[in-house]
Design a protein around this nucleic acid. Structure first.
Lengths: 128, 128
DNA sequence: CTGCATCCTCTTTGATACTG
DNA sequence: CAGTATCAAAGAGGATGCAG
């Protein structure tokens, strides 16, 4: 079929050198997922995100936000005030992805008990 | 509501020490996502997975499979033949998650062009 | 407040060689 | 085939100090 307008790229993350692999690695990163979740309900300032994502360093938050901004997933708004104010928000593209991220997060939270139980069972069986 | 039978745990990955954070980090890992995708269509042998996930080392494949097995997401079947045969398959719990993983992978592949374009635009704007 | 630069450590990962 | 063991290389991540 190779529909028209789709371009002839066949991105395939199962291949070493395909850029989609790097993107997938990037999106799956914990900090990315949590930042998406933090911005899910609306724009936030740098410090507000940091407060919600407990334990993230300014370095990692900056790095994560820059990467997401460069990928067109997050937008940055700078207000020249005193002190300066900067807000981050999901772009249209980012909101689209946010639903997937949210699903992943919800899955982890929602099935934590089952996973924990599975681990116990596994450890018990592989002890003797 | 806090429905009965759900337990009173309030797993929250935005918190440093919550086990759901570690789980989320684990699931988001590139190799986990790709192994899920490889097993999506049915059971596979160790070598078959390695062949599909281009570039993964036996060490990482083993480690990834062990982790997923321990979490109850993947099952391992050992057949004492000569040469030995081992197959891996998604468990019921794993199949549930597989849909989310698949959505993430599909998103990355499906929006790669847009992300690439966004990067160009960003780089162009932040060059001068 | 927002964030860049640096240093430094700890973990992750890849390559390689070897075993049941 | 399906791993395990080991070693070296690479990179991620945190702490800190400074700047706009």
């Amino acid at each position: 079929m190779s529909a028209a307008g789709e371009g002839d790229h066949a991105y395939n993350p199962y291949t070493r050198s395909c850029p989609s692999r790097r993107l997938l690695r990037e999106l799956g990163e914990l900090w990315s997922v949590l930042v998406f979740g933090a911005l899910y309900d609306g724009p936030l300032r740098f410090t507000e995100i940091a407060r919600r994502v407990d334990g993230i360093s300014t370095k990692m938050l900056t790095q994560t936000l820059r990467t997401l901004e460069r990928d067109g997933l997050v937008s940055r708004e700078y207000y020249t005030e005193s002190p300066p104010r900067v807000t981050y928000a999901l772009t249209e593209l980012g909101r689209d992805l946010a639903d997937v991220m949210d699903a992943l997060e919800k899955w982890a939270v929602g099935h934590m008990d089952e996973v924990l139980a599975a681990r116990e069972a596994y450890d018990a069986e592989h002890a003797g």
